[in-house]
Nucleic acid binder design. Structure first.
Length: 214
DNA sequence: CTCCCGATAT
DNA sequence: ATATCAGGAG
């Protein structure tokens, strides 16, 4: 059984290594304003960032404001975002989200967790992406990579994303949260992928329960 | 726990 | 042909 100080020192070492291996690690969604990151992240639910970027390249030229999305024809928006999957839910959520942004938030993307979570289609992952990247408010972004890697590395035993989020917050200094989340995504894509992790090439294999228990 | 869905790896 | 990728809502 590992105690909390042991977890913290391991987390610190892993975080240091990953920040050196992926110094450029940042959100890989394409955007140049808050609304675009919010929409892109909503589309990224169960979809790779790469595919989202293909769709948003055209989408962001066609819909340039909350008003465009709020008054969009649902069927047309569905077609515009179709390749990202779950397109009916996502189109409905985007329209509902932008209507609420206009109605309750002056058309601006909220800068706090509670308001972001009140938006349809926005959960903690999406909220933390927006908070971290737009408002520089640290948060652990628990996507599928964060979940898989933090379990493999042994930083948490939890499966529930919210519990993982709070577990990691408890063992990493606040100023590392966003960068650490982003580096996990990079490492998850490049080395520690779901199907066949390349443990031989892994810089943190020495700290990894998954690798050491194979 | 179930539903939502297209794309790619195997 | 099928398994897996990748979050949120009810």
């Amino acid at each position: 059984m590992r105690d909390n100080d042991d977890l913290k020192s391991r987390a610190k070492k892993i975080s240091e290594i990953l920040s050196k291996v992926y110094p450029e690690a940042t959100c890989s969604l394409d955007y140049d304003k808050p609304l675009e990151l919010l929409i892109a992240t909503m589309l990224a639910a169960q979809c790779t960032d790469e595919r989202v970027n293909i769709v948003t390249w055209d989408l962001f030229k066609k819909y340039t404001s909350v008003y465009n999305y709020a008054s969009a024809n649902p069927e047309e928006l569905e077609e515009d975002i179709r390749p990202t999957g779950f397109y009916r839910n996502k189109a409905r959520n985007i329209i509902g989200c932008c209507k609420k942004l206009i109605k309750d938030f002056g058309g601006k993307v909220p800068d706090n967790m509670e308001d972001l979570l009140s938006l349809p289609g926005v959960g903690r992952k999406t909220a933390n992406v927006v908070l971290g990247n737009i408002y520089k408010i640290p948060g652990i972004i628990v996507d599928t990579h964060c979940k898989r890697l933090s379990n493999r590395i042994g930083l948490t035993k939890e499966e529930d994303p919210e519990k993982i989020e709070f577990d990691l917050m408890g063992i990493l200094p606040r100023e590392k949260w966003t960068a650490f989340s982003n580096s996990l995504v990079y490492h998850g894509r490049a080395i520690c992928n779901a199907r066949k992790p390349k443990c031989v090439q892994c810089h943190i294999a020495q700290y990894c329960d998954f690798f050491n228990n194979i």
